[in-house]
């Protein structure tokens, strides 16, 4: 039972991260389409933001495994 609940928790964390990273990706694409000249800045900021969101999801997943 605990295993199933942990799996559901990990799945929920992934849904949250996926929505967040999807939003970042779509907005970054829009921004690049509007201002192609700053593509480098947008790309590194996009990766940075995606990594930060991923961090929150990872903590949840690890907690789901160990609690």
């Amino acid at each position: 039972m605990t295993g199933t609940l942990a799996a559901i928790g990990a799945g929920l964390a992934v849904i949250g991260a996926a929505i967040g990273i999807g939003n970042i990706g779509s907005k970054a694409m829009e921004a690049i389409a509007r201002q192609p000249e700053v593509v480098g800045d947008i790309r590194s900021n996009m990766i940075l933001m995606a990594a930060l969101i991923e961090g929150a999801a990872l903590i949840t997943i690890i907690l789901a495994f160990f609690v």
Binding site: A51, E54, G55, A56, L58, I59, I61, I62
Partner: peptide
Amino acid sequence: FIKPITLMLRLFA
């Protein structure tokens, strides 16, 4: 402390 912990977990995971 959370900053290095996420750094550690992100690469590992």
